[in-house]
Amino acid sequence: MKLTKNTIFITGGTSGIGRGLAEAFHRLGNQVIIAGRRKALLDEIAAANPGMDTVVLDINDPVQIKAVADEVIARHPGLNVVINNAGIMPFDNPASGDLDDDQAVGLLNTNVLGPVRVSAAFVEHLKRQPEAWIINNSSVLAFLPLAATALYSATKAAIHSYTLSQRFALRDTSVGVLEIAPPWVDTDLIHKSGDPRAMPLDAFLSETLAKLEHATTEVLVDGVVPLRANVGPNEHALINQFNQSLVDNPIPVA
């Protein structure tokens, strides 16, 4: 996709990768609209990035998603890019009978139904644009699940699968569908720690934008490529090795 002269709507644009992408696209001269739940934080980001637009959105509210989409399209009729970035990453234990059902339902609503609903709210408008894109932010954990965040990993696998179907279904339209599958990036999705195993946000953004310009399906930083290729009947060895390494050297949490 071209990196300039777009009008871009980004969910989860107030922190981490979402904010990083929003500000990077803004610096390139695109019209950017970020969505998030906290108006004060949205206002702070808009003040730091003059010309960036904001809208309050609870990604778990399907009625509000439709209303926000209508509002954004009315304000920005040239909108041609939607980035589904909003997500949460709670820890869970698939070996325990102590299931936090409210947390599980909230995770599915945010990480799976959120992108599905946002896409549905914008897609008819996007079809009317000469060139448009839906970009879904999944994770390397879609291909290499982390047992300590088993349900989160499953939601990202679901987004990967949905993206494959969405891309095919839109094949004869002006709407392309891309998937960004980040590695562990040092943001506050879990706990920003400076852990050397995490990719610095600036490095991730730089490499992602460079690859995004020429992408037609997936956007993978170099470190993710061999992990993406691991999927198949012999995938278990690397999955077990990966998870054991994090048991032996846990991810730092607040």
Rank of each mutant, 00 (worst) to 15 (best):
K192C: 06
R75D: 08
K39T: 11
F204N: 05
H191T: 12
I180V: 10
G20M: 08
S193P: 12
W133Y: 14
A158M: 07
A154E: 09
K39E: 14
S245A: 15
V225N: 08
T155F: 05
N234I: 00
N30C: 02
L144Y: 03
G176D: 01
A67K: 14
V224L: 04
A210N: 09
G51L: 06
S174P: 01
V118H: 04
A229S: 14
N60V: 08
V56E: 13
A40R: 02
A169S: 14
E131K: 10
A147M: 12
G232S: 07
T163K: 04
R228N: 13
H160A: 13
I45S: 11
A121W: 08
A67I: 04
N111F: 06
P145D: 10
S138Q: 03
I17Y: 07
N85R: 06
I10H: 05
G114F: 10
P145R: 09
H125I: 13
M89A: 15
D53I: 01
I73F: 07
D195P: 07
H125D: 10
A154W: 11
T110H: 09
H160W: 13
N234A: 14
D102G: 12
S96M: 06
K5A: 13
A132D: 10
A254R: 11
A47C: 02
V185Y: 08
T7V: 15
R75S: 14
L79M: 13
A121N: 01
G114A: 08
V185M: 10
K5L: 07
L3K: 12
A148P: 00
L205T: 04
V219K: 02
I33H: 04
Q31G: 01
P182M: 05
E207Q: 15
I180F: 03
L107F: 08
V81R: 10
E124I: 02
F143H: 15
I88L: 11
L99A: 15
T14I: 10
G29T: 07
S139N: 05
V253F: 03
I73D: 05
L164K: 13
V253H: 11
